[in-house]
Design a protein around this nucleic acid. Structure first.
Lengths: 224, 224
DNA sequence: CTGGATCCTCAACGATACTG
DNA sequence: CAGTATCGTTGAGGATCCAG
């Protein structure tokens, strides 16, 4: 399984030899959300050939970017996780996400939102940002039938996949949620037009919309 | 020429559809250094099939990332350049470069340094950094037979390809220059061991080594 | 000479089936 | 569940050729 080698002693070329492989960036995105089993990766990456996934995981393991964790007590399955070296890819993945998001308008024919994609988008939008100490809110975000959550607490923002217990706010939207994160669709308009349906305090959704922001493009108005 | 489509409404997926193509990242790196002609790109990317380069340029043009500039008065050739949308890729290219550089040790068999690769590396290392107003120095960097230059002036650092007139310092090195930029090889040792040959004031090379830094890994000591 | 287009070969990818 | 095996298809690699 010889990866493409560009023959240049160059950081970008070395990176390209890895992330330039088909599907690799999406595998890394899914793993950046958290450790995943083989079958979860298959489910989260519709269309990936299982042989390709197996090859990519092996290559990433050989490169020290991903590790296979043997089943521990209680668990019964191997899980794949990012190594510290893999975690160091996060700034690059974030930068690519922001750039790619800047080129998105509406979904193309057949494009879907996966749990990992919305979770990763929210993580990028949170951006390790700091929030006021007194903010203590939990959000559940539904896009189609996938769910993620956002927790603001202790001056930090945490984002994860799946539902959360007793969310203060439940946000239900379609792909238009992108407009909110991009700062192109303001919170009140989003609710007024029905692009976003809310369960909970609209002021907390306003806070959500003001705090989470992607892309950081010069063409996008700054956070107020 | 159907690009790979991942079928996900996700910034990273959209980015992957473009930069995940073979050679694309290196084409973008070469163009990030400055506008280039077709033949210059061929020369700077040893091994690229000319048909592949033509395809990539066309795809990048269709995506609004690269533009073909018709020959103007004086010039006689088409040049390719990044559009503003292409320029916005720079943070992502930089992040990937830093990450890739963190995994490099010695060159692998047959790996070379190109003009664009060393120039891009120095640009990343400069990182839009600010330097003291009074620094006013020009460096010429030779690695093998490729040349780049660094200019510190007006509190800014500029990096370009090729030689420069009357450089204050001429730095000649092999791929070990990476160690200097990585902060793994300090300036005095580099000179003492002959890894770097200098023409000019060693104190100015010390300044060079202290100011230019890649990768920003947690494992690398900070700039003093 | 520059800026490609064309041709052929082969490795990689995509889809599906199958197994420990 | 976690992959491997098989096989058809596509795109990259490499050389050559052609038009302005």
């Amino acid at each position: 399984m010889t990866n493409q080698h560009y023959g240049q002693f160059c950081g970008l070329a070395r990176a390209a030899e890895i992330v330039g492989q088909r599907w690799t960036l999406l595998v890394l995105r899914d793993l950046s959300v958290g450790p995943r089993r083989y079958s979860e990766l298959v489910a989260g990456l519709p269309g990936i050939p299982t042989g390709t996934l197996a090859s990519r995981l092996k290559e990433l393991e050989d490169e020290g970017i991903v590790e296979r964790l043997a089943p521990r007590g209680g668990e019964r399955s191997i899980v794949y996780a990012l190594t510290p070296r893999g975690e160091e890819l996060r700034p690059a993945l974030d930068a690519l996400s922001r750039w790619g998001a800047g080129g998105m308008r509406a979904p193309r024919e057949g494009e879907i939102v996966t749990t990992a994609s919305i979770t990763a988008a929210l993580q990028v939008a949170a951006g390790g940002g700091v929030v006021p100490e007194e903010w203590n809110t939990t959000y559940e975000v539904h896009v189609g039938d996938v769910v993620a959550h956002v927790i603001m607490r202790d001056a930090a923002i945490a984002v994860g996949s799946g539902p959360i217990e007793n969310p203060a706010v439940v946000i239900t939207a379609g792909p238009q949620i992108r407009g909110v994160l991009a700062g192109e669709l303001d919170a009140q308009t989003a609710i007024a037009t029905g692009a976003v349906q809310l369960k909970g305090d609209p002021a907390l959704f306003q806070r959500f919309a003001d705090t989470l922001r992607v892309p950081f493009s010069v063409n996008v108005p700054p956070i107020v």
